[in-house]
Amino acid sequence: MSYQSMEEAYARCEKEGIEFWKAVQLEDAEERDIKLDDSWKQMKGMWQAMLDSIDTYDPALMSRSGLVGKEGGIMEEYLAKGDTLCGDFMAKVMANALKMGCNNACMKRIVAAPTAGACGVLPAVLVTFYREYDVPEEKMVEAMYVAAGVGQIIAARAYLAGASGGCQAEVGSGSGMAAAAICHVKGGSKEQLGHACAMALKNLMGLVCDPVGGLVEVPCVKRNVGGAVNAMAAADMALAGIVSQIPVDQVIDAMKEVGDRMDVSLKETGVGGVAGSLRAQEVVKKIF
């Protein structure tokens, strides 16, 4: 049975003297009765699919509604001028998050991580880092296991669908997974990656799912940027030695409680939040 808590995964790491990612891989191989090597190949395939998807981005394409599509290209042009507020690397993270979000809205092939709406967060953090710095690919595949393991525990204790728990469950979870993953790449301990995840989740707790017209376009594409930047900040805090005073498992439980209390108009129904704004209603009239 897969891990039901980060504590349970930590306990195995300590008992067997292994890293967090390895505990996730071992559990996957045992649960599905496959060889470790086959599990690795499959994960490497997911990593490759992420790399491929970013490269299929076409700034000339627009979604069917015409609301999104070109944002990745606009950001890239801007960062090429070398005068961004957030710095070159963070601007690249933002551009990649936009590209993936636009790819999804334009019905291109993407990797759900953990969902399609949040598909930009993890590659924005991991792929950008991989291409910017000299990191062995093995390290990135390990980081994918970290992200998947964390996501699995969130799925077991809470949920990953906007319709069930709001955007905190989608971009929030993606951000928590990405924070933990990049923390591992930077040499963080299992406790540090747990803190990174907890801080990322807390920062986005309560985030509602309010897509205009019910389409995964506005505000979803840009929220991937928010999730990616938040993940980087949470990972940096954890690597600095800052801890989450609330244990990560309890943060996940709190997210579940918040999601349960969230009104249905704020859970992917296209009714509340910015979906209910005057402008959104005008846009919807035009589209449908």
């Binding site: 994960m43 979604s63 019905m107 906007g162």
Partner: peptide, 15 residues
């Protein structure tokens, strides 16, 4: 874990 990372799918919504 491949339900969490994945599926590789055509957008726009996993659900």
């Amino acid at each position: 874990i491949f339900d969490i990372l994945g599926p590789v799918m055509v957008g726009p919504s996993s659900s």
